[in-house]
Design a protein around this nucleic acid. Sequence first.
DNA 1: AACTGATATGTACGTTTGTACAGTGCAAAC
DNA 2: GTTTGCACTGTACAAACGTACATATCAGTT
Lengths: 202, 202
Amino acid sequence: MGRRKKSARPRPRREHLLEVTIELVAREGIDAVTHRRVAELARVPLGSTTYYFASRDEMLVEALKTFGRQEIAALQARLAELPGRRPSRRRYIDGLVDFLAPQLGDDHWRTVAQYTLLCEAARRPELEAVAREWNQAWWAMLEELFRALRAPDPVLEARMLLAMLDGFLVEQLAAPDPDFLSAVLRPALRRVFSRALSGAGS
Amino acid sequence: MGRRKKSARPRPRREHLLEVTIELVAREGIDAVTHRRVAELARVPLGSTTYYFASRDEMLVEALKTFGRQEIAALQARLAELPGRRPSRRRYIDGLVDFLAPQLGDDHWRTVAQYTLLCEAARRPELEAVAREWNQAWWAMLEELFRALRAPDPVLEARMLLAMLDGFLVEQLAAPDPDFLSAVLRPALRRVFSRALSGAGS
DNA sequence: AACTGATATGTACGTTTGTACAGTGCAAAC
DNA sequence: GTTTGCACTGTACAAACGTACATATCAGTT
Protein backbone atom coordinates (compact mmCIF):
# COMPACT_ATOMS: atom_id res chain seq x y z
CA MET A 1 0.00 0.00 0.00
CA GLY A 2 2.23 2.77 -1.16
CA ARG A 3 4.84 2.08 1.46
CA ARG A 4 8.29 2.01 0.00
CA LYS A 5 10.42 -1.04 0.50
CA LYS A 6 13.55 -0.72 2.59
CA SER A 7 12.76 2.89 3.38
CA ALA A 8 12.58 2.09 7.08
CA ARG A 9 16.31 2.11 7.74
CA PRO A 10 18.38 4.17 5.37
CA ARG A 11 20.94 4.49 8.18
CA PRO A 12 24.12 2.45 7.96
CA ARG A 13 23.82 -0.84 9.74
CA ARG A 14 26.92 -0.55 11.86
CA GLU A 15 25.83 2.67 13.53
CA HIS A 16 22.44 1.24 14.17
CA LEU A 17 23.98 -1.75 15.91
CA LEU A 18 26.04 0.59 18.08
CA GLU A 19 22.95 2.53 19.08
CA VAL A 20 21.08 -0.59 20.01
CA THR A 21 24.06 -1.82 21.99
CA ILE A 22 24.44 1.31 24.08
CA GLU A 23 20.75 1.40 24.82
CA LEU A 24 20.92 -2.20 25.92
CA VAL A 25 23.84 -1.41 28.20
CA ALA A 26 21.87 1.34 29.89
CA ARG A 27 18.56 -0.45 30.17
CA GLU A 28 19.61 -3.99 31.02
CA GLY A 29 23.28 -3.81 31.88
CA ILE A 30 26.42 -4.93 30.14
CA ASP A 31 25.50 -8.53 30.83
CA ALA A 32 22.62 -8.26 28.41
CA VAL A 33 24.84 -7.39 25.48
CA THR A 34 25.10 -10.58 23.43
CA HIS A 35 25.30 -11.01 19.69
CA ARG A 36 21.87 -12.53 19.56
CA ARG A 37 20.16 -9.95 21.73
CA VAL A 38 21.65 -7.02 19.85
CA ALA A 39 20.76 -8.60 16.50
CA GLU A 40 17.21 -9.20 17.67
CA LEU A 41 16.68 -5.64 18.88
CA ALA A 42 18.30 -4.17 15.79
CA ARG A 43 16.22 -6.45 13.57
CA VAL A 44 19.22 -7.75 11.69
CA PRO A 45 20.38 -11.33 11.26
CA LEU A 46 22.82 -12.77 13.77
CA GLY A 47 25.58 -12.87 11.17
CA SER A 48 25.61 -9.09 10.88
CA THR A 49 26.95 -8.66 14.38
CA THR A 50 29.99 -10.75 13.62
CA TYR A 51 30.38 -9.14 10.24
CA TYR A 52 30.68 -5.62 11.62
CA PHE A 53 32.63 -6.40 14.77
CA ALA A 54 35.51 -8.77 15.31
CA SER A 55 34.21 -9.81 18.70
CA ARG A 56 31.57 -9.14 21.28
CA ASP A 57 34.09 -7.11 23.23
CA GLU A 58 34.89 -4.90 20.27
CA MET A 59 31.20 -4.31 19.72
CA LEU A 60 30.76 -3.26 23.32
CA VAL A 61 33.79 -1.01 23.53
CA GLU A 62 33.03 0.57 20.18
CA ALA A 63 29.51 1.32 21.35
CA LEU A 64 30.74 2.95 24.54
CA LYS A 65 33.33 5.00 22.69
CA THR A 66 30.88 6.18 20.05
CA PHE A 67 28.34 7.07 22.68
CA GLY A 68 30.89 9.03 24.69
CA ARG A 69 31.97 11.01 21.67
CA GLN A 70 28.36 11.74 20.76
CA GLU A 71 27.77 13.15 24.22
CA ILE A 72 30.85 15.32 23.91
CA ALA A 73 29.69 16.60 20.53
CA ALA A 74 26.25 17.33 21.93
CA LEU A 75 27.85 19.24 24.78
CA GLN A 76 29.94 21.33 22.43
CA ALA A 77 26.89 22.08 20.32
CA ARG A 78 25.30 23.56 23.42
CA LEU A 79 28.45 25.47 24.06
CA ALA A 80 27.85 27.39 20.87
CA GLU A 81 24.51 28.54 22.23
CA LEU A 82 26.09 30.10 25.28
CA PRO A 83 25.34 33.77 25.75
CA GLY A 84 28.03 36.31 24.93
CA ARG A 85 30.25 38.11 27.38
CA ARG A 86 29.04 39.27 30.77
CA PRO A 87 25.41 38.16 30.66
CA SER A 88 23.31 37.71 33.75
CA ARG A 89 24.12 35.11 36.35
CA ARG A 90 20.54 34.04 36.30
CA ARG A 91 20.71 33.16 32.65
CA TYR A 92 23.63 30.83 33.23
CA ILE A 93 21.84 29.10 36.03
CA ASP A 94 18.76 28.61 33.89
CA GLY A 95 20.97 27.30 31.10
CA LEU A 96 22.59 24.72 33.31
CA VAL A 97 19.30 23.61 34.79
CA ASP A 98 17.80 23.24 31.33
CA PHE A 99 20.82 21.24 30.31
CA LEU A 100 20.62 18.83 33.22
CA ALA A 101 16.87 18.47 33.52
CA PRO A 102 16.38 16.00 30.64
CA GLN A 103 19.12 13.79 32.06
CA LEU A 104 17.00 13.28 35.15
CA GLY A 105 13.84 12.58 33.18
CA ASP A 106 13.54 11.65 29.53
CA ASP A 107 17.22 10.96 28.93
CA HIS A 108 17.68 9.14 32.18
CA TRP A 109 19.01 6.05 30.42
CA ARG A 110 21.66 8.12 28.66
CA THR A 111 22.94 9.25 32.02
CA VAL A 112 23.07 5.64 33.17
CA ALA A 113 25.09 4.81 30.06
CA GLN A 114 27.39 7.74 30.74
CA TYR A 115 28.38 6.61 34.22
CA THR A 116 28.51 2.98 33.20
CA LEU A 117 31.03 4.12 30.63
CA LEU A 118 33.10 5.79 33.34
CA CYS A 119 33.04 2.68 35.52
CA GLU A 120 34.09 0.56 32.59
CA ALA A 121 36.85 3.03 31.77
CA ALA A 122 38.37 2.31 35.16
CA ARG A 123 39.10 -1.17 33.86
CA ARG A 124 39.67 -0.62 30.14
CA PRO A 125 42.51 1.60 28.97
CA GLU A 126 40.83 2.01 25.56
CA LEU A 127 38.06 4.00 27.22
CA GLU A 128 40.24 6.27 29.32
CA ALA A 129 40.74 8.65 26.44
CA VAL A 130 37.02 9.18 25.95
CA ALA A 131 36.51 9.76 29.65
CA ARG A 132 39.29 12.33 29.65
CA GLU A 133 37.92 14.13 26.62
CA TRP A 134 34.53 14.27 28.22
CA ASN A 135 35.97 15.88 31.35
CA GLN A 136 37.97 18.35 29.34
CA ALA A 137 35.01 19.39 27.24
CA TRP A 138 33.09 20.16 30.42
CA TRP A 139 35.99 21.94 32.06
CA ALA A 140 36.50 24.11 29.02
CA MET A 141 32.86 25.02 28.91
CA LEU A 142 32.53 25.84 32.61
CA GLU A 143 35.86 27.62 32.74
CA GLU A 144 34.78 29.82 29.87
CA LEU A 145 31.58 30.46 31.72
CA PHE A 146 33.27 31.62 34.91
CA ARG A 147 35.71 33.64 32.90
CA ALA A 148 32.87 35.46 31.17
CA LEU A 149 31.44 36.21 34.59
CA ARG A 150 34.81 37.61 35.73
CA ALA A 151 35.23 35.04 38.49
CA PRO A 152 38.60 35.41 40.24
CA ASP A 153 39.64 31.78 39.79
CA PRO A 154 37.78 30.24 36.85
CA VAL A 155 39.89 27.07 36.64
CA LEU A 156 39.34 25.73 40.14
CA GLU A 157 35.80 27.03 40.07
CA ALA A 158 35.05 25.02 36.96
CA ARG A 159 36.52 21.83 38.38
CA MET A 160 34.52 22.22 41.56
CA LEU A 161 31.28 22.87 39.76
CA LEU A 162 31.70 19.98 37.34
CA ALA A 163 32.42 17.63 40.23
CA MET A 164 29.29 18.84 41.98
CA LEU A 165 27.12 18.35 38.91
CA ASP A 166 28.57 14.89 38.37
CA GLY A 167 27.89 14.03 41.96
CA PHE A 168 24.30 15.19 41.76
CA LEU A 169 23.70 13.15 38.62
CA VAL A 170 25.22 10.00 40.10
CA GLU A 171 23.16 10.48 43.21
CA GLN A 172 19.94 10.90 41.26
CA LEU A 173 20.88 7.88 39.19
CA ALA A 174 20.13 5.46 41.97
CA ALA A 175 17.79 7.32 44.26
CA PRO A 176 15.84 9.86 42.21
CA ASP A 177 14.11 12.71 44.01
CA PRO A 178 11.18 14.36 42.18
CA ASP A 179 11.87 17.73 43.82
CA PHE A 180 15.55 17.63 43.07
CA LEU A 181 15.61 20.45 40.55
CA SER A 182 13.92 23.07 42.65
CA ALA A 183 14.89 21.83 46.09
CA VAL A 184 18.56 21.15 45.55
CA LEU A 185 20.05 21.91 42.17
CA ARG A 186 18.81 25.46 41.74
CA PRO A 187 19.69 26.65 45.26
CA ALA A 188 23.08 24.99 44.96
CA LEU A 189 23.81 26.69 41.65
CA ARG A 190 22.71 30.06 42.99
CA ARG A 191 25.10 29.67 45.86
CA VAL A 192 27.99 28.50 43.69
CA PHE A 193 27.66 31.42 41.32
CA SER A 194 27.20 34.09 43.90
CA ARG A 195 30.23 32.82 45.78
CA ALA A 196 32.46 32.38 42.79
CA LEU A 197 31.73 35.92 41.69
CA SER A 198 32.22 37.53 45.04
CA GLY A 199 35.62 35.90 45.21
CA ALA A 200 35.02 34.72 48.76
CA GLY A 201 37.35 32.25 50.36
CA SER A 202 40.24 32.21 47.97
CA MET B 1 55.61 -29.11 58.90
CA GLY B 2 53.82 -27.57 61.83
CA ARG B 3 51.28 -25.77 59.70
CA ARG B 4 47.79 -26.24 60.98
CA LYS B 5 45.20 -27.79 58.75
CA LYS B 6 42.17 -25.76 57.75
CA SER B 7 43.38 -22.78 59.74
CA ALA B 8 43.43 -20.67 56.60
CA ARG B 9 39.73 -19.78 56.48
CA PRO B 10 37.81 -19.97 59.70
CA ARG B 11 35.37 -17.46 58.19
CA PRO B 12 31.94 -18.62 57.10
CA ARG B 13 31.83 -19.69 53.49
CA ARG B 14 28.94 -17.55 52.40
CA GLU B 15 30.59 -14.30 53.40
CA HIS B 16 33.76 -15.32 51.74
CA LEU B 17 31.90 -15.96 48.50
CA LEU B 18 30.35 -12.51 48.73
CA GLU B 19 33.75 -10.91 49.21
CA VAL B 20 35.19 -12.70 46.24
CA THR B 21 32.20 -11.71 44.15
CA ILE B 22 32.42 -8.02 44.89
CA GLU B 23 36.13 -7.99 44.23
CA LEU B 24 35.48 -9.68 40.92
CA VAL B 25 32.88 -7.09 40.05
CA ALA B 26 35.33 -4.30 40.66
CA ARG B 27 38.36 -5.84 39.00
CA GLU B 28 36.85 -7.54 35.97
CA GLY B 29 33.31 -6.26 35.70
CA ILE B 30 29.92 -7.80 36.33
CA ASP B 31 30.37 -9.94 33.26
CA ALA B 32 33.10 -11.88 34.98
CA VAL B 33 30.84 -13.00 37.82
CA THR B 34 29.99 -16.61 37.02
CA HIS B 35 29.49 -19.51 39.37
CA ARG B 36 32.65 -21.17 38.19
CA ARG B 37 34.87 -18.10 38.36
CA VAL B 38 33.70 -17.20 41.85
CA ALA B 39 34.14 -20.76 43.04
CA GLU B 40 37.62 -20.89 41.60
CA LEU B 41 38.74 -17.63 43.22
CA ALA B 42 37.16 -18.57 46.53
CA ARG B 43 38.74 -22.02 46.35
CA VAL B 44 35.48 -23.81 46.93
CA PRO B 45 33.78 -26.43 44.78
CA LEU B 46 31.32 -25.29 42.15
CA GLY B 47 28.42 -26.80 44.07
CA SER B 48 28.92 -24.38 46.95
CA THR B 49 27.89 -21.41 44.87
CA THR B 50 24.52 -22.94 44.11
CA TYR B 51 24.17 -24.15 47.66
CA TYR B 52 24.46 -20.70 49.20
CA PHE B 53 22.62 -18.73 46.54
CA ALA B 54 19.46 -19.56 44.67
CA SER B 55 20.80 -18.07 41.43
CA ARG B 56 23.66 -16.16 39.94
CA ASP B 57 21.58 -13.02 40.16
CA GLU B 58 20.94 -13.46 43.86
CA MET B 59 24.64 -13.98 44.44
CA LEU B 60 25.46 -10.77 42.61
CA VAL B 61 22.80 -8.61 44.21
CA GLU B 62 23.57 -9.99 47.65
CA ALA B 63 27.24 -9.18 47.14
CA LEU B 64 26.48 -5.61 46.11
CA LYS B 65 24.10 -5.10 49.02
CA THR B 66 26.52 -6.50 51.56
CA PHE B 67 29.34 -4.43 50.18
CA GLY B 68 27.26 -1.27 50.29
CA ARG B 69 26.29 -1.86 53.90
CA GLN B 70 29.90 -2.52 54.82
CA GLU B 71 30.92 0.79 53.34
CA ILE B 72 28.19 2.54 55.28
CA ALA B 73 29.31 0.88 58.48
CA ALA B 74 32.91 1.85 57.80
CA LEU B 75 31.80 5.43 57.23
CA GLN B 76 29.92 5.53 60.49
CA ALA B 77 32.90 4.10 62.32
CA ARG B 78 34.92 7.04 61.08
CA LEU B 79 32.14 9.34 62.16
CA ALA B 80 32.78 8.31 65.74
CA GLU B 81 36.35 9.51 65.40
CA LEU B 82 35.26 13.00 64.43
CA PRO B 83 36.65 15.75 66.64
CA GLY B 84 34.34 17.34 69.18
CA ARG B 85 32.64 20.70 68.86
CA ARG B 86 34.27 23.68 67.20
CA PRO B 87 37.63 22.25 66.22
CA SER B 88 39.82 23.80 63.59
CA ARG B 89 38.74 23.96 60.00
CA ARG B 90 42.12 22.63 59.02
CA ARG B 91 41.55 19.47 60.99
CA TYR B 92 38.35 18.74 59.14
CA ILE B 93 40.02 19.21 55.81
CA ASP B 94 42.84 16.89 56.79
CA GLY B 95 40.28 14.36 57.99
CA LEU B 96 38.41 14.38 54.70
CA VAL B 97 41.58 14.15 52.68
CA ASP B 98 42.77 11.23 54.76
CA PHE B 99 39.41 9.60 54.26
CA LEU B 100 39.43 9.95 50.50
CA ALA B 101 43.11 9.34 49.81
CA PRO B 102 43.01 5.52 50.09
CA GLN B 103 40.07 5.42 47.68
CA LEU B 104 42.28 6.91 45.01
CA GLY B 105 45.16 4.55 45.72
CA ASP B 106 45.05 1.29 47.64
CA ASP B 107 41.29 0.97 47.80
CA HIS B 108 40.76 2.07 44.25
CA TRP B 109 38.88 -1.12 43.39
CA ARG B 110 36.46 -0.51 46.27
CA THR B 111 35.58 2.83 44.75
CA VAL B 112 34.98 1.16 41.42
CA ALA B 113 32.68 -1.30 43.15
CA GLN B 114 30.89 1.57 44.88
CA TYR B 115 29.97 3.36 41.68
CA THR B 116 29.22 0.16 39.85
CA LEU B 117 26.75 -0.47 42.63
CA LEU B 118 25.13 2.90 42.02
CA CYS B 119 24.85 2.26 38.28
CA GLU B 120 23.31 -1.11 38.95
CA ALA B 121 20.91 0.45 41.44
CA ALA B 122 19.50 2.57 38.61
CA ARG B 123 18.19 -0.66 37.12
CA ARG B 124 17.48 -2.81 40.19
CA PRO B 125 14.94 -1.66 42.76
CA GLU B 126 16.43 -4.01 45.36
CA LEU B 127 19.58 -1.89 45.41
CA GLU B 128 17.90 1.50 45.63
CA ALA B 129 17.58 1.21 49.39
CA VAL B 130 21.30 0.65 49.87
CA ALA B 131 22.12 3.59 47.64
CA ARG B 132 19.78 5.80 49.62
CA GLU B 133 21.21 4.69 52.96
CA TRP B 134 24.67 5.42 51.70
CA ASN B 135 23.71 8.94 50.72
CA GLN B 136 21.99 9.56 53.99
CA ALA B 137 24.94 8.34 56.04
CA TRP B 138 27.16 10.82 54.23
CA TRP B 139 24.68 13.66 54.49
CA ALA B 140 24.30 13.10 58.19
CA MET B 141 28.05 13.08 58.68
CA LEU B 142 28.74 16.20 56.63
CA GLU B 143 25.75 18.04 58.00
CA GLU B 144 26.98 17.37 61.51
CA LEU B 145 30.36 18.62 60.44
CA PHE B 146 29.08 21.94 59.12
CA ARG B 147 26.86 22.30 62.14
CA ALA B 148 29.84 21.90 64.45
CA LEU B 149 31.59 24.59 62.47
CA ARG B 150 28.57 26.88 62.86
CA ALA B 151 27.92 27.13 59.15
CA PRO B 152 24.78 29.13 58.37
CA ASP B 153 23.15 26.46 56.21
CA PRO B 154 24.54 23.02 57.08
CA VAL B 155 21.94 21.03 55.13
CA LEU B 156 22.51 22.48 51.68
CA GLU B 157 26.19 22.79 52.41
CA ALA B 158 26.41 19.07 53.13
CA ARG B 159 24.56 18.10 49.99
CA MET B 160 26.79 20.30 47.88
CA LEU B 161 29.98 18.98 49.40
CA LEU B 162 28.95 15.34 49.10
CA ALA B 163 28.08 15.86 45.46
CA MET B 164 31.45 17.44 44.87
CA LEU B 165 33.31 14.60 46.55
CA ASP B 166 31.30 12.05 44.59
CA GLY B 167 32.08 13.89 41.40
CA PHE B 168 35.79 13.99 42.13
CA LEU B 169 35.86 10.27 42.87
CA VAL B 170 33.97 9.37 39.71
CA GLU B 171 36.27 11.58 37.71
CA GLN B 172 39.39 9.99 39.18
CA LEU B 173 37.87 6.59 38.57
CA ALA B 174 38.40 6.77 34.86
CA ALA B 175 41.15 9.29 34.40
CA PRO B 176 43.32 9.30 37.50
CA ASP B 177 45.60 12.28 38.12
CA PRO B 178 48.61 11.69 40.38
CA ASP B 179 48.58 15.28 41.65
CA PHE B 180 44.88 15.26 42.34
CA LEU B 181 45.09 15.44 46.13
CA SER B 182 47.30 18.48 46.37
CA ALA B 183 46.38 20.19 43.12
CA VAL B 184 42.62 19.91 43.28
CA LEU B 185 41.05 18.28 46.30
CA ARG B 186 42.81 20.24 49.01
CA PRO B 187 42.34 23.67 47.42
CA ALA B 188 38.73 22.84 46.68
CA LEU B 189 38.07 21.80 50.27
CA ARG B 190 39.76 24.91 51.62
CA ARG B 191 37.52 27.02 49.47
CA VAL B 192 34.36 25.15 50.39
CA PHE B 193 34.99 25.44 54.10
CA SER B 194 36.02 29.03 54.13
CA ARG B 195 32.96 29.95 52.09
CA ALA B 196 30.50 27.88 54.05
CA LEU B 197 31.72 29.42 57.27
CA SER B 198 31.71 32.98 56.09
CA GLY B 199 28.13 32.53 55.02
CA ALA B 200 28.80 34.09 51.66
CA GLY B 201 26.21 33.90 48.95
CA SER B 202 23.21 32.63 50.83
C1' DA C 1 27.51 -13.13 -20.49
C1' DA C 2 31.04 -14.14 -17.48
C1' DC C 3 33.87 -12.55 -13.81
C1' DT C 4 35.05 -10.14 -9.53
C1' DG C 5 35.10 -8.12 -5.18
C1' DA C 6 32.46 -6.33 -1.33
C1' DT C 7 28.60 -6.78 1.47
C1' DA C 8 25.70 -9.57 3.84
C1' DT C 9 23.42 -13.81 5.84
C1' DG C 10 22.13 -18.66 7.74
C1' DT C 11 23.83 -22.42 9.83
C1' DA C 12 26.57 -25.18 12.48
C1' DC C 13 30.16 -26.19 16.03
C1' DG C 14 32.74 -26.27 20.21
C1' DT C 15 32.52 -23.86 24.76
C1' DT C 16 30.79 -21.93 28.61
C1' DT C 17 27.02 -21.09 31.26
C1' DG C 18 23.29 -21.69 35.05
C1' DT C 19 21.26 -24.95 37.63
C1' DA C 20 19.38 -29.44 39.21
C1' DC C 21 20.21 -33.25 41.92
C1' DA C 22 21.92 -37.65 43.57
C1' DG C 23 25.12 -38.49 46.50
C1' DT C 24 28.72 -38.04 50.58
C1' DG C 25 30.33 -37.21 55.19
C1' DC C 26 29.41 -36.51 59.78
C1' DA C 27 27.66 -34.98 64.26
C1' DA C 28 23.76 -35.49 67.19
C1' DA C 29 19.62 -38.13 68.54
C1' DC C 30 17.70 -42.26 69.49
C1' DG D 1 24.54 -49.26 66.11
C1' DT D 2 21.19 -47.37 63.72
C1' DT D 3 18.83 -43.48 62.19
C1' DT D 4 18.15 -38.88 61.10
C1' DG D 5 19.10 -34.39 59.42
C1' DC D 6 21.92 -31.07 57.67
C1' DA D 7 26.03 -29.06 55.42
C1' DC D 8 28.26 -29.78 51.52
C1' DT D 9 30.07 -31.49 46.80
C1' DG D 10 30.78 -33.69 42.07
C1' DT D 11 28.64 -34.56 38.02
C1' DA D 12 25.58 -34.09 34.38
C1' DC D 13 22.78 -31.60 31.05
C1' DA D 14 20.01 -28.36 28.45
C1' DA D 15 20.31 -23.80 26.99
C1' DA D 16 22.78 -19.92 25.51
C1' DC D 17 26.89 -18.28 24.00
C1' DG D 18 30.86 -16.47 20.71
C1' DT D 19 32.54 -17.25 16.52
C1' DA D 20 33.88 -19.44 11.95
C1' DC D 21 32.63 -20.05 7.51
C1' DA D 22 30.29 -21.57 3.25
C1' DT D 23 27.07 -19.48 0.81
C1' DA D 24 24.17 -15.78 -1.25
C1' DT D 25 23.32 -11.30 -3.39
C1' DC D 26 24.47 -7.77 -6.33
C1' DA D 27 26.94 -3.67 -8.45
C1' DG D 28 30.59 -2.75 -11.37
C1' DT D 29 33.98 -4.37 -14.83
C1' DT D 30 35.42 -6.84 -18.73
